[in-house]
Design a protein around this nucleic acid. Structure first.
Length: 387
DNA sequence: CTTAGGG
DNA sequence: CCCTAAG
């Protein structure tokens, strides 16, 4: 059968959701042996809105938008032997001049990793079946994709599908790896291979260039956006020569990072712990250029470390400031500060002293981040001294 | 593009 | 770290 035909399952279909056409599959319940269960893709009149129980028109989405919308599709649910490559091909062609192929591929590979994880969770079929039926609050019936019938036991709306309890159950029982809460989806849906899109609300920036009107939608439902954030850094960022001083942190970590960054290059940057050397360089930079000259500091003091953008440096300074402040308030015994600062990574006192020194030197109001008072007048901060 | 600020 | 609003 042609599995590629099921994607993208978008189209405008005002018809109400019906159990027989769940997610574009038509379930044949008549005279089928249990091993030849069929899910015929019906890509003629699939409606996402009806599937989601939402009305696209209510969100101001016209049918002309639906083409662009196809970017939000996710093929990851298809196992390898289900023709994903061809699906990807056609998809890339669709994309045309958008120049998104590398990102798409990255995201795709990323997804494959997750799918493999799911498929490798050797749950007995019976157990899966049980979990599926339980979490969907439906006795087999509609969701039974591996045996006798698809008897419609009543229509099921989206609200039934996305119940917190059910989904959290799914997460705990099947370990959908690394899924933020936005990605909650019924296990049954996942296994059935019908879920479209896996979005993180924070990574909507690429999508919203094309379908900005979906923004609020993807923000709340996140079923249709996708994690196609273009890569901002070269893929071999971690392969580039690291700062000889900075990289004193861990050489064994580099190799792991290298491998991981090849697989999942999008997503967040690999979290790199700030070393004392880096902090010292940061402080040197601030004392050299002054506060706010993050780009200069980066160019002069962090030139060799390809990571550590000016924003990173600024963020680190912000954290240092906070640390120095809370540390001062604590200022009793040194045994006390250890429990607060996570696991042996306590910032040396002299560094904190330098932080405070620099902060006061640049007439930055030290320690004024939202403390006890939340009143806006009190928390007015940052009177810059230099430009 | 840089900074600042919030998440 | 990420994202976005302002210059």
């Amino acid at each position: 059968m042609d599995w590629t035909g099921i994607v993208p399952p978008f189209g405008m279909d005002p018809r109400p959701y019906s159990p027989e056409t769940f997610a574009g599959f038509k379930c044949h319940s008549d005279n089928m042996s249990s091993d030849t269960k069929r899910m015929e893709p019906r890509h003629d009149n699939i409606s996402v809105d009806s599937f989601l129980g939402l009305s696209m028109e209510n969100m101001g989405i016209t049918s002309s938008k639906m083409d662009e919308f196809s970017l939000g599709l996710d093929f990851s649910f298809l196992p390898d032997d289900f023709g994903t490559s061809s699906a990807l091909d056609s998809w890339s062609k669709q994309d045309g001049e958008a120049g998104l192929k590398p990102e798409i591929l990255d995201g795709f590979l990323d997804e494959v990793e997750e799918v493999e994880h799911i498929y490798s969770s050797h749950l007995p079929e019976t157990q899966v079946k049980k979990e599926v039926s339980e979490l969907d609050g439906e006795p087999y019936g509609l969701m039974n994709f591996s045996s006798e019938s698809c008897s419609p036991s009543g229509s099921i709306g989206l609200s039934d599908w996305s119940k917190e309890t059910a989904v959290s159950h799914a997460e705990s029982s099947v370990k959908v790896k690394d899924e933020p809460e936005d990605d909650r989806k019924p296990l049954s849906t996942l296994l059935l291979g019908s879920w479209v899109g896996r979005g993180r609300s924070r990574n909507k920036n690429l999508l919203n260039t094309r379908c900005t009107r979906l923004d609020s939608f993807s923000e709340t439902k996140s079923c249709l956006s996708y994690d196609f954030r273009p890569r901002k850094e070269p893929m071999d960022d971690t392969l580039l020569s690291d700062d000889p001083i900075t990289s004193s942190e861990s050489e064994d970590d580099i190799s792991v990072t290298t491998i991981k960054s090849k697989i999942r290059t999008d997503r967040r940057k690999h979290h790199r712990m700030w070393t004392i050397d880096e902090v010292v360089k940061l402080l040197d930079g601030i004392s050299h250029f002054g506060l706010g000259k993050w780009t200069d500091i980066k160019n002069l003091f962090f030139h060799s470390s390809s990571h550590r953008t000016p924003v990173d440096i600024r963020d680190k300074w912000r954290n240092l400031l906070k640390a120095s402040c809370s540390n001062k308030h604590n200022g009793d015994e040194e045994g006390e500060e250890k429990r607060r600062w996570s696991a042996g990574r306590t910032i040396p006192k002299d560094i904190l002293h330098r932080v405070r020194e620099l902060a006061s030197l640049n007439s930055k109001s030290v320690c004024d981040f939202r403390g006890s008072s939340r009143s806006p007048s009190t928390s007015r901060k940052k009177k810059k001294k230099r430009g």
